[in-house]
Design a binder for these strands. Sequence first.
RNA 1: GGCCCGGUGGCGCAAUUGGUUAGCGCAUCAGACUGUCGAUCUGAGGGUUGAGGGUUCGAGCCCCUUCCGGGUCGCCA
Length: 593
Amino acid sequence: MKLKRTHDCGQLTRANVGEEVILNGWVDSCRNHGGLIFLDLRDRYGITQCQIDPATTVGGEEFKTESVVAVRGTVQPRPEGNVNRKRATGEIELMALECELLGPTKTIPFEIVDDSDTREDLRLKYRYLDMRRAPLTRAMVFRSEVTRIIREVFHAERFVEVETPLLMKTTPEGARDYIVPSRLQPGKVYALPQSPQLFKQTLMVCGLDRYFQICKCLRDEDLRADRQPEFTQLDMEMSFVEPDDVFAVIEKTVTRLWKELLGKDLPATFPRLSYREVMDRYGIDKPDTRFGLELQDVSAIAASCGFQVFSGAVAAGGSVRAIVVPGGAELGRKKIDALEAVAKTYGAKGLAWVKINADGFQGPVGKFLTEDELRAMMAKAGANTGDLMLFVADRNPVVYASLAQVRLALGRELDLIDKSRTDVLWVTEFPLFEYDEEAGAWFAMHHMFTMPSTPLPDRPGAAMADIHGKLYDLVINGNEMGSGSVRIHLPEVQRKVFELVGMGQEEADMKFGWFLRALEYGAPPHGGIALGLDRLVMVMLGYDNIRDVIAFPKNASGVCPLTESPSEPLGDTLDVLGLQLNPDFFKKVETEG
RNA sequence: GGCCCGGUGGCGCAAUUGGUUAGCGCAUCAGACUGUCGAUCUGAGGGUUGAGGGUUCGAGCCCCUUCCGGGUCGCCA
């Protein structure tokens, strides 16, 4: 290139008038008026208008949108009345003396505008074009700032940044592993990390005291709008700590991120709510507390009512809970049906409702309950005339899950969520174990390395439901942003937990023997947390899709439309590993099954 | 794997109850134009409506199968 830039496209102002400069960038738009051409040159930093006189400008012509061009010219003030107030460089323009086409372009497949509505797989196929859009460029720069600040805080707090292996031992608990076959050890495989959990705990046994890492984690599960097969975590671990010590570091980090990057003040410490409390009030362990409509337990009244659906649910050990929608008596049947559909998605058999009109009760529940029972429920739930009450009666997990989602749907539908608010909170005191009715077994709710708060029972059983762990989640605006715990540092406790979730001694030694051995040699009490970095950036920017904060994401089918991965293995890749792929395997299983 | 939504020129959309030659905006190409700023004006080209099958005198529209994309449930310790 002959014309190498002296400035970027966002920095020239009145102060530069008279200077001869060179700009390099992309053609944002090129407006040809015949006798003169206006060329908007764009780079990451901004857009500067260049004026080309086709008669005198060397190499001056109309350039194709998105081609890469260099312009040498003189900075001049724009004539009176032609200032563009929308741009930082709007007071000046570059009178082009010479132009050079640095990178020609084919006609682009879609327009590059901020509010793109091009379908996403096409945007991903041409990611380099899509990324030139301001919202995506901004996300990348913003994300870089987030990690910069995180590193500043953690280094200032004397954390050591350590890289842990990508090729590690497979431990198929939890999510499905991505597997990497070993060439040097035929017949064996590595796994890609679902998280560096055991390595970071081992680093505590190493005596590093405070560790952090911004690392990739990989889980072979189905994708969602907020879930990618590979994602990034801010992972940290500290020795000789209680949960409060972990909270303090994260609170410092998060408040500083919000302050520096969004100019918003968050409280110095975040509210702590117990798992019991958030489930009771919101039915979900990641509550969006930016609006009300909390769940109301009317089981006591429902237990003795004549409505079998209600009384039966309570008798079976479940509950009847309600959401009161203030002014909800105005809601039409269509909207209530839509809410019922939400409830059913989450396992509810139905969504009972009653409108409290001035002239009486209206709705299916009204027919089955006496007026006294309805009035008692109104009082218990805090409902008034003009309100709508929505009920779910079922087993507790179903009641919680369905009403929690009905509540969120109402929040969106009735526009109750104050988007200007940032509600950050800790959810604490999670149960350590959960019972999986399908599998008929107990398993660890978070993971198997969390220190119990109370003594463990001798053998698996119902008593496990009452065991709580030093477990905590960070929740921001209803998003699970991070999860952590104080860990087990005593090998006999760790062995006991393995045993309680049905892992025999032999199996435990095969999978985690190396780690149990590490705990036997002076392991410090320790704890930590991992934050989802992609989600954090997504929430900070107010985006609703995780792909928009990741440079080269996969689509919902796990395919990268840009590179077309995954792809058929090439050459002797498989032979070297002694492998054979059998894509028809799944079809066969289907037809034979 | 289940459910919901979608697939129509390069991109975004439209097309009464099934009914002429499938329209519109942007983009593209050609021409005009010395103050635009996502320029404007004039004109032109560009489509086997994702694929396959069926119903019908007639299918973009209805039915079946299938592929692709988005969302979601399951799943994600």
